[in-house]
Structure formats: C-alpha cells, structure tokens
Design a protein around this nucleic acid. Structure first.
Lengths: 100, 100
DNA sequence: CCCACTACTTGACACAATGGAAAGTACTCA
DNA sequence: TGAGTACTTTCCATTGTGTCAAGTAGTGGG
C-alpha cells in the first residue's frame, strides 16, 4: 500500500488541476495552464505563488520575441507531495469500490 | 471512459471523506462518521446539512435507549455525483501516470 | 526616445467557506 | 424535575478565493 498524505494545499480544485497538468510533463507554459484551467491571470498567478512558496513548483522566465514567458514545473518535493496526495485520495475512495 | 463531473460541493476535504465513507456502506451513524473524520459535532452537522440540501445525503433518526441517533446514507443522486466526481479526479490525475 | 503591447504580478476589496465555542432543542431515564 | 445524550444552530473570527485595477519588465515600431 503506497504511502499517502492528504495535502490541503494541493487539494483545492485549481491547484489540484495545476499539479496534475504539471505532473504529466516536464514543464509547461503559464499561458497554457491558464487556458486549460480557464481562469484569470491573477488567479493563476496567485495559486502558482502559493505552490512556489511551498516549494512544490518552480518557474523560469524565457525571453521570446514578444517579451518573455514563464515555464512552470513541479519540483521533486512537489511531485512527491502530489503523488502522496493522489495515493491518499485513492485510499479514501477505494473503500467505495469494495462495499460490504 | 466513464463520465465525470468535478463537483465542488463534494470535493471539500471533509465532505469528500463523508461521501467516501457513506459510499462504502448502506448507511452509517453520525457518531461513527464524526469519529472517523475527527471533527466536532457542529462541523459535521453543518457539512451534512449542506449535503442534505443538495439531496446527496439523507438521514433518519432512530430511537435508542439513550435517546436517538442519526443514521446517514447517500441518496441515489449522491451516489451518482460522488461516482462522477471520483471518475473526474481519476481523469484529471491519470495523465500523470502516462508522462509524455 | 516614447508609446503600445505582451505577460505576468500585486494590491485593494468583497464575499463565501470553514471551524471553534457555546447555547438551544428534543427526548429519555432515574 | 434534573441530568444526560445526541445532535443543531448561532455567533464570531479566520482564511480562502475571486474580480478589478494598477504596477512592472522587456520588446518592437514610429
């Protein structure tokens, strides 16, 4: 049975989606995540900031023709926390697949 | 691929746990759920009320020697909503199991 | 060089959600 | 009648989340 810890920071809908998207890839653009979640710049920016402060996400700015864009990725810590959180969700919900 | 809808009412940590516990059984006592979640009476009572107002949970009072106790269960609607929510969680998070 | 534009970031503010503490309700038993 | 059980509701403080507007930093055009 994999270890799992319910992580409230990750659990909030938007942050869960951010982490899930980032967990699937090495890194992704701010703009792409924002479009996937369909939220405003400021909402995404603030949620990312919280994840960065927890050292779950890291960002790097890349110069492009139009200015610069932000690439986001999960840190090793973030990947582990996300993994443990979904293990915990699994554990909580799998009860319902084996009803008495 | 099972249908799934992200349900914010169910997603909140305590309500997700309540639904998961109830999904595993036909019905359960208020007191048992409260001990499982380790929350106060008032917190559980309020969360149950929200789930009842959404017609996800139903309750019945049963007379016992010491007074009466409340038995809780998921309604058909609640079971369906919970099932769809965990399908959606599955869908969101399974991406991370098939990295590019 | 200044202005517009892109791509976020931050601050001010409003409002909904959550929780603890304590009072209230309903019922039973001694 | 008074105590105890089992919630329920109210009051209040805190936290979370979102909108909107303004701020910042770098780039390209006139």
């Amino acid at each position: 049975m994999p270890k799992g810890k319910f992580d409230e920071l990750i659990h909030a809908p938007n942050r869960l989606k951010i982490c899930a998207l980032l967990a699937a890839v090495k890194e992704s653009e701010f703009r792409v995540i924002r479009e996937e979640l369909d939220v405003s710049d400021s909402v995404l920016s603030k949620q990312i900031k919280l994840l960065e402060e927890a050292n779950y996400v890291q960002s790097r700015k890349v110069n492009v023709i139009t200015g610069k864009v932000t690439w986001l990725s999960l840190t090793k810590t973030g990947r582990k926390a996300f993994s443990e959180h979904i293990n915990e969700l699994q554990r909580i919900t799998e009860l319902s697949k084996n009803p008495l």
